[in-house]
């Protein structure tokens, strides 16, 4: 829009500019030049592949195959008929169902505890944030050794108090829950930071007003001020945690590979095995579409709740 294109370059200003040059000056191409790299890359690396994954899910394409053909919903038929798919979907939902409430409540509890006093705030914040920073793969390996049936710390402690601990990650009744525990351990600090930001933004005067209005106990003030004002943040944290735990892959792949006997098989891990180990791109794409549907659903819920949250504010 602005006429910044160097239509006449360094040529002296005194020259009257022909009408055509004026035209060009107004229809500046500069903005398009500025966004061109980003737009191109977006199309190639993001939007194109997104359309591609949906299209692929209707094909029988396998990496390296000379051709592909449209097979309609065959991939989806196969998927819905496959017990492993249902197991992996169920496991994913269980994982999300445990990690989200677990990590959100611990995150909230830590944030409230830290904010309820003034001493050592930043030290606590740092400590609780450490798991977020640490490379998850490295820490998964550490957890694996901590959960080692014989030499691990967890079973060692249990032995001290006379309990024979299970072989956590090798036992199909405990493996998924062990992964959940790692998930909560890693995500709580992240949620804490979001909650702390929410708590700091609550005006101090509201607490003073609540006290004057007769909310004498800390619990009363929490119910009257903190919780309602923290609601938008809470919704937000819940959805973010949901999306993040739906993507669980690292710990599964390095610690259990979906085992024992598919008890920790999750969606993204199935997608990885089908798409990148068996190179069944079409089938992997169909799994991706299922995954995407869930993410989209969560996002929709978020925007719905966010809209309602605005009315509260």
């Amino acid at each position: 829009m602005s006429d910044n294109v160097a239509t006449i370059g360094g040529v002296t200003v005194r020259l009257p500019v022909p009408a055509t040059a004026q035209r060009r000056g107004r229809l500046s191409l500069t903005p398009y030049g500025l966004v061109a790299p980003a737009l191109t890359l977006m199309l190639i690396m993001l939007l194109g592949p997104l359309a591609g994954v949906i299209a692929l899910s209707f094909t029988d394409y396998q990496l390296g195959a000379p051709s592909l053909s449209w097979i309609g919903l065959a991939n989806y038929h196969e998927m819905f008929g496959d017990r492993v798919f249902w197991t992996s979907l169920r496991n994913t939902l269980v994982y999300v169902g445990i990690v989200v409430p677990g990590a959100v409540t611990t995150g909230l509890a830590i944030a409230l505890l830290i904010q309820s006093g003034t001493s050592l705030r930043s030290l606590y914040r740092t400590i609780y944030f450490l798991p977020v920073m640490a490379t998850l793969i490295a820490m998964a390996v550490v957890w694996e050794f901590m959960l080692h049936p014989q030499f691990g710390l967890v079973n060692g402690v249990l032995r001290e108090i006379g309990i024979a601990g299970p072989s956590w990650l090798q036992d199909r009744s405990t493996a998924l829950y062990a992964l959940c525990a790692i998930g909560i351990w890693q995500a709580a600090g992240f949620n804490m930071v979001l909650f702390l930001a929410g708590l700091v933004s609550i005006p101090k005067q509201l607490y003073e007003a609540a006290e004057i209005d007769g909310a004498a106990s800390a619990w009363a003030r929490f119910r009257l001020v903190t919780w309602p004002l923290l609601r938008p943040v809470t919704t937000f944290v819940v959805v973010i945690s949901g999306i993040r735990s739906f993507q669980v892959f690292d710990t599964v792949h390095v610690l259990t590979k979906g085992g024992p006997s598919k008890s920790t098989e999750v969606l993204i891990h199935s997608m990885y095995t089908e798409g990148f180990e068996f190179f069944r791109s079409g089938y992997g794409a169909a799994l991706t579409v299922v995954f995407l549907t869930f993410i989209l659903l969560l996002t929709l819920i978020k925007s719905r709740l966010a809209d309602r949250g605005v009315q509260y504010a």
């Binding site: 829009m1 602005s2 006429d3 910044n4 294109v5 160097a6 239509t7 006449i8 200003v13 005194r14 020259l15 009257p16 500019v17 040059a21 004026q22 035209r23 060009r24 000056g25 107004r26």
Partner: peptide, 27 residues
């Protein structure tokens, strides 16, 4: 200044029409 293009009309500086000339070149 040349920061905003006019919808119609002309700006003349010392006898030269400066429409379409970028701001810095108008001196």
């Amino acid at each position: 200044a040349g920061l905003e293009p006019q919808s119609a009309g002309q700006v003349t500086i010392d006898g030269s029409i400066v429409d379409g000339i970028r701001p810095s070149a108008r001196n």
